[in-house]
Structure formats: structure tokens, C-alpha cells
């Protein structure tokens, strides 16, 4: 690796240094925009005791769900964890620690973590189980709870395109949590569909600047669809 070139040549290299009991922040919403090959590499490595921070936990055989059978996840911080039978089993039996976090709060926790803001107040969750044990304060007559930022030892991210310097462009709703995750990892690893030369991306159209990115790899993606819904072709 020379200068600002972030490209690594193998998934093994991409996830080098990930060890047991680390915290990993992952981008993705459902199965959309998930770093599927980086997840597979974590499965292959067999790293255990992980704390995962991700909006969802995949399905039984795809996405972060593949880390469940070998009990690689100790704790997950997520907003929605349906659609996964093994997840439910491990959660109900107490093998898996689940911290349910409202989706907007989760996004903001990552954003704050990456931006060096230790905590923030939000009205989300006031008077609900989410508020238990959290500092409460009124501003302008309204109640807010204090939510702490999240950072990870690793962040794993899926983008559409990157240049070799790690400037990222996302596509459609596969963007979701990825830009925030990218800012919040001590080591941020990004996999993309295409890597181009520096200068080829329009600087005005870069979603995540390369300063947040440590390692970059080009992969091929299955992009599984969770809910395939269509309308008939002739129906306008």
C-alpha cells in the first residue's frame, strides 16, 4: 500500500486484525447494501464473541445471519431482528445478548461516534423501555434522553463505486447505514462493485470521502432480495 491507495488484494487481508470479542459496525438495511463478502470472511475466520452493530441481523443463511450457527456473535445492537429463526432461538435462550435500539437513534449513534460526539439527546424512546437507565433532561419543556455514541474496532461497508483513495459512491437505497458505519470504525473496510482511478469520480458526487476508509476491495455480489414485490407489466 502506498500513499493514499487503500486497495487490498484479498478478503483475508481486508479483515486482518479482527480478533475475538471485538466490536464490528456493519452497514446495510435488511439484505440491501450489506457487505456480504466481508461477512463471509468473518465466518471463514471463525472470530468469536463479537459485538455487532447493525440495523438488522440478516436471514438464516445470508447476511449477518451466517455468523449465528457457530455462535460468533455475543451481542447485537439492532433496531429490527425479525425474519431469522436461529436468531430468535438464541435470543430467547439467552445465548445472544440483544440491545434493541430505535433505527434513527442507531444511525445517529454511529454518526456521532464517527464525528467525535460522545452522546446526544433525543426525544425518541422517552417513556419506553429504551429510556431505562438513561439520563433524562428537558429542553424547551420537552423530555429527552441521553444516548451514547457508538464506535467499532472495525466497520464493514458496502459501496457501489470507489476510487483507489477510498472515495465512495453508494447506489440507491443500498446507501442506508453504510456512510455512518464508514465513519465509526477504527479500521473501516469497504467492499465495492467497481474500483476506478483517482480523479475519475466527480468530487461533487462523492458520498463518503476517502479519509474514513482504511481498506478497499472489489468483490462480486449476490444481492439477494428479501421481499420481491412486483406489479404486472401492463399496469401503469
Amino acid at each position: 500500500m502506498a500513499g493514499f491507495n487503500k486497495v487490498v488484494s484479498s478478503y483475508e487481508e481486508a479483515m486482518a486484525g479482527l480478533t475475538d470479542n471485538m466490536t464490528v459496525i456493519s452497514g446495510g438495511f435488511g439484505l440491501c447494501g450489506i457487505p456480504e463478502n466481508l461477512i463471509s470472511e468473518i465466518k471463514r475466520k471463525g472470530t468469536k464473541g463479537l459485538t455487532l452493530v447493525s440495523n438488522n441481523c440478516g436471514v438464516d443463511d445470508f447476511g449477518l445471519g451466517v455468523l449465528l450457527p457457530d455462535r460468533q456473535i455475543k451481542k447485537i445492537v439492532a433496531s429490527y431482528v425479525g425474519e431469522n429463526a436461529e436468531f430468535e432461538r438464541q435470543m430467547m435462550s439467552g445465548e445472544l445478548d440483544v440491545e434493541l435500539t430505535p433505527q434513527g437513534t442507531l444511525a445517529e449513534k454511529m454518526r456521532a461516534g464517527g464525528a467525535g460526539i460522545p452522546a446526544f439527546y433525543t426525544a425518541t424512546g422517552v417513556g419506553t423501555p429504551v429510556a431505562i437507565g438513561k439520563d433524562e433532561r428537558q429542553f424547551n419543556g420537552r423530555d429527552y434522553i441521553l444516548e451514547e455514541a457508538i464506535t467499532g474496532d472495525f466497520a464493514i461497508v458496502k459501496a457501489w463505486k470507489a476510487d483507489k483513495y477510498g472515495n465512495l459512491v453508494f447506489r440507491r437505497t443500498a446507501r442506508n447505514f453504510n456512510p455512518m458505519a464508514a465513519t465509526a470504525g477504527k479500521i473501516t473496510v469497504v467492499e465495492v462493485e467497481e474500483i476506478v482511478e483517482p480523479g475519475e469520480l466527480n468530487p461533487d458526487e462523492i458520498h463518503t470521502p476517502g479519509i474514513y476508509v482504511n481498506r478497499l476491495i472489489q468483490g462480486t455480489f449476490e444481492k439477494r432480495i428479501e421481499q420481491r414485490t412486483t406489479r404486472p407489466t401492463n399496469n401503469k
Binding site: 435488511g30 442507531l106 444511525a107 454518526r111 457501489w160 446507501r175 442506508n176 456512510p179 455512518m180 421481499q227
Partner: peptide, 24 residues
Amino acid sequence: DADLINAGKQTVTMAIGASIFDSA
């Protein structure tokens, strides 16, 4: 398009004048 879903994880399309942004 696998990259274009709604909050219910259903495949959708974009209306004219749509915009895309991150979760935060």
C-alpha cells in the same frame, strides 16, 4: 433492482423527483 427497496424491504421504484439519502 436489489439496491432499491422500501422500509418493509420490498422492491420499489422511485417517483419523478425522488431523492436518496443515508439513514442519519
